[in-house]
């Protein structure tokens, strides 16, 4: 490595350029700076270690740390620890979950709901993504996608509230049905699994749409044309070509939406009712009261995380084997 900045040749740089050059030139010939850089870049190995140290420290302490701490607390009998009290290792927090119906009912409800809502989101957004990727010119694709992005910049709470107004007893849907004389009395949509589903699908649709769109967009149109030339019907082309080749997008979209759906707290609180309590509300309950319930909350959160990761992992395995099965 040469220590000097190479002199600039050719036609004279304008003044602004020369100024910048002077700054960088001064910097790189400034002895303390050269010393530091020289030490830091003495070998590729040292250079790499310096580059890697901070990110490694960050992900270990900030990304992994909270999860590990949650896991540790879930095995203790008291947290936060009051002065003078000893903390013990225990499995009681986990036993508590399996021991009581009122805990595992919302747990299974959450997983079922998340699965059903994920499927609904997929069915709803696949045709939209298909239309955008296959039937719209490239210039309009971006505009039409952008149009769909706008509502998704609006926050979770505001969008949940919008659904409350839509589905309430005097909400737009009920008023419209009444006006059309289809009903006499409002249909109680709110505080049911239906209103919750509409809300959650509304919040997550984009996370499904984008992976589907990028998978469909990558798929060469010539495949379908070739199949059509060979006499395959539209349905066969979809089933044998489009669907198998977009399984990857389906798989990542579903994983994302499933994980997000299990984590909603405010939306079920606002849109759901007593019969639709989800596990997020159960977990949150342990953090609203005195501190000694924290370990149970941590254990429950751990159970849910493990279950969600396990299910999405199994799902991805399944999709992978489907993909391989189809290409063979």
């Amino acid at each position: 490595m040469s220590d000097d900045v190479a002199p600039r040749t050719g036609r004279g740089p304008d003044t602004a350029d020369r100024k910048r050059l002077t700054f960088w030139g001064t910097l790189s010939s400034w002895t303390p700076y050269r010393l530091v850089v020289g030490l830091a870049t003495a070998s590729p190995r040292r250079q790499f270690l310096i580059l890697a140290a901070f990110p490694l420290l960050w992900v270990l302490t900030q990304h992994l740390g909270p999860m590990l701490q949650m896991l540790r607390v879930s095995f203790t009998d008291a947290y936060p620890v009051a002065p003078g009290v000893e903390q013990h290792f225990t499995l009681d927090n986990y036993a508590r979950f399996f021991g009581d119906y009122i805990f595992w009912q919302p747990f299974f409800r959450t997983l079922t709901f998340a699965g059903v809502f994920t499927f609904c989101t997929l069915i709803l957004t696949y045709p939209v993504a298909y239309f955008l990727a296959r039937h719209v010119s490239r210039k309009n694709q971006m505009l039409m996608l952008l149009l769909l992005l706008i509502p998704f910049w609006v926050g979770e709470i505001v969008r949940t509230y919008a659904i409350m107004i839509l589905l309430g007893n005097t909400g737009a849907v009920n008023q419209l049905l009444k006006w059309l004389s289809l009903i006499d009395r409002p249909i109680p949509f709110m505080y049911t699994s239906f209103s919750m589903g509409v809300g959650i699908v509304y919040l997550t649709a984009l996370y499904m749409l984008l992976p589907l769109y990028s998978a469909l967009e990558k798929l060469p149109r010539s495949y379908n044309e070739a199949a059509a030339d060979l006499g395959a019907s539209a349905w066969t082309r979809f089933r044998r070509i489009t669907l198998p080749l977009t399984l990857e997008g389906i798989s990542s979209g579903c994983t994302l939406v499933f994980l997000i759906s299990t984590g909603f707290y405010a939306t079920p609180v606002l849109l759901g009712g007593p019969s639709t309590t989800v596990f997020a509300e159960t977990i949150a309950g342990f953090f609203h009261v005195a501190g000694d319930e924290w370990p149970t909350g941590a254990a429950f959160a751990t159970i849910m995380f493990v279950a969600a990761i396990f299910l999405t992992g199994a799902f991805q395995k399944l999709m992978n084997s489907l993909r391989k099965g189809d290409t063979n």
Partner: peptide, 12 residues
Amino acid sequence: VPGIISAIAFRI
């Protein structure tokens, strides 16, 4: 990490 779990882990 699902929202509620992330919030709980950060809180702890």
